[in-house]
Design a protein around this nucleic acid. Structure first.
Lengths: 349, 349
DNA sequence: TTGTAAGCGTTATCAG
DNA sequence: CTGATAACGCTTACAA
């Protein structure tokens, strides 16, 4: 496992290590004689030399790595965001170093510290929750940091997110346009900007038509099928007069909600319309196919990476804030309300 | 952004840097006077000292990082495998550095080289295809390497994979048990061990009952819905007498196949049974719910990481080969064949 | 228990 | 165009 070092390459090419370094590196290669360069290159190839990125990193003070913090690889759009970042980072020779938080503040802090320790050139986090603001700001003082997907209120940090306010409003307008007047919301965790924005957008969309949503204070602790089911069941239990439409803060929750409704004998979309969020894989293969809000996640990933890169190139430019518009995907889980619901008590699973 | 170094901590604590190092590191802390240690710890905290992992890595010769190569974050079980690895790596203070290949050999090589350059302590790859064998073996000579999920035929490298042979056989026996005798297979790319094994297992399962599958030479270039649809459409086009059951090499392809069948007016499971593979998220929410083979992917991730770790601890132990048994998940996409199919020509979408 | 000194593999800087 | 030298920040024999 003895690794070939620059010194050995230099010896074989009969040059000084620094000459070998110049010949191999892109920046200084022109200051090396053509013949010498060839010799060095050949020696390197023959020995199977690979530069030690750790030593380079120590010397140059940068690791050539961008730290990326995500909630979960299984999260609906994590893969798309990551792929976008990867593609645009690769173009500039940077490698993403990815860490998961699983929605735990402790793990977020740990991941950020890890990345700081590794001297990541910059960090992109898509996992910030409101209680993490202090930690994030602390880290941002040590290394350029970009907030992606999830923003932090009042933060001056460069931010790129989906326009969830617009997404929520879209959902509201769609439902209103269909004729719904009695609507409810199945909220995701409200310590995350995405869900707060969706809620605000949804409510303001309703308000435009003078409608206000069914009061209901329970929100999901995570955006999963089980949580969607639990929250929807609670809605059934607590709401005397059932809403004719429901806006779920993500597709998985929408699926859970539809499950809960079905178990109570309430059909979607005949008895209740459901709008999801994310347009996840297979959303179009469910029954009914899910009407949902589609997010330009791949694009967001690209832009986040580009923003990060330009932040490194031009550290003193004003921190940008980008917001990406979503779009409505019409499918079968929404339709006009059948008729005003009667007060009814329904069995709960 | 001037980062605090050990030297500054040492100065503030009025000790020599080496003493500071000992006080801070876990191994030598006991050789430091209690009072001194306290002073160093306090100084470090006050200055917000964070050890430079790059410098540590250079000095110690190890980066404290395990390189992990995956095909795609969106791949059905990547997330589960990764989470398994992460959990067991974290327990021993190692961090996964993840790279994607998108099923490209060039990217695989690039990713492996990147990881070698970063002096990853070890590499786990779940993305190897047969043509990559040479590259993988080359890299394995420089750094401990574990083949996970996808094995390489004839390779002596430590390997941990799903028992796809058993999975394929399970699918075959299930279909045979239901009474099917005319069955076909929708294969994934056959330069990947997983799919070759599934095929071999399926065929041998059939052979036990003296059945052989419908001859059909087209295989998918990737395990996606679109590819499943394409291959299934080709099957419809080329097979005069339609099979009563189909084994798709993964769930997404199964979904695509069911789509293609539906477009041709062939219902699942009434006219054709379909078995998938992976038990992906939402497989139970499709229509019909997918009968499929479930893989212990989280467990595989854990074990792969443990194997890697013990490989580092005990480099001279014989390279283990582990195979993890899958299980059959019975759902609605399979049923007894209605009756022997007549020869028929069918419209293709 | 603490200090000394050397060096991990590179590259920036300065001479030549 | 090439060589010498020092330094990036840290750990670890070894000496005291």
């Amino acid at each position: 496992m003895g690794n070939v070092t620059l010194l050995e390459v230099a010896r074989r090419a009969r040059v000084h290590p620094s000459t070998a370094s110049r010949a191999l590196g892109p920046g200084y290669a022109k200051y090396v004689g053509e013949a010498t360069r060839r010799r060095v290159l050949r020696a390197a190839k023959e020995l199977g030399y690979r530069p030690n990125a750790i030593a380079q990193g120590l010397r140059k003070g940068r690791a050539g790595v961008i730290g990326v913090v995500v909630v979960d690889f299984e999260h609906p759009f994590t893969a798309a965001v990551l792929r976008g970042m990867e593609i645009s980072l690769e173009a500039v020779g940077l490698m993403p170093l990815v860490a998961e938080t699983h929605e735990s503040s402790a793990r977020l802090e740990q991941a950020l510290d890890h990345l700081v320790d590794r001297r990541a050139d910059a960090i992109i986090t898509t996992a910030a929750r409101f209680p993490d603001a202090e930690v994030v700001e602390r880290v941002a003082r040590r290394v350029p940091l970009v907030l992606a997907v999830r923003s932090l209120p009042g933060s001056q940090l460069p931010t790129i997110a989906h326009d969830d306010m617009a997404g929520g409003a879209m959902a509201a307008r769609h439902l209103l346009g269909l004729g719904h007047r009695r609507v409810a919301e199945l909220c995701g965790p409200l310590d995350v900007s995405s869900f707060v924005q969706r809620q605000a957008g949804f409510r303001s969309g309703l308000a435009e038509a003078g409608v206000s949503e069914v009061a209901f204070e329970i929100s999901a602790t995570s955006g999963t099928i089980d949580e969607g089911k639990r929250v929807a069941a609670a809605l059934l239990e607590r709401t005397p007069e059932l809403p004719t439409a429901v806006f779920a803060h993500n597709d998985l929750m929408a699926v859970g909600a539809i499950d809960a409704f079905a178990e109570a004998g309430i059909r979607c979309p005949q008895d209740v319309s459901v709008v999801g969020y994310n347009d996840m894989l297979l959303a179009d293969h469910l029954v009914p196919p899910l009407t949902t809000i589609r997010l330009p996640s791949f694009h967001l990933g690209r832009l986040a990476a580009e923003m990060t890169h330009s932040l490194l190139e031009t550290p003193d430019s004003p921190p940008p804030t980008i917001s990406l518009p979503p779009s409505l995907v019409l499918r079968g889980s929404t339709s006009a309300p059948r008729r005003p619901n009667r007060v009814q008590s329904l069995p709960v699973a």
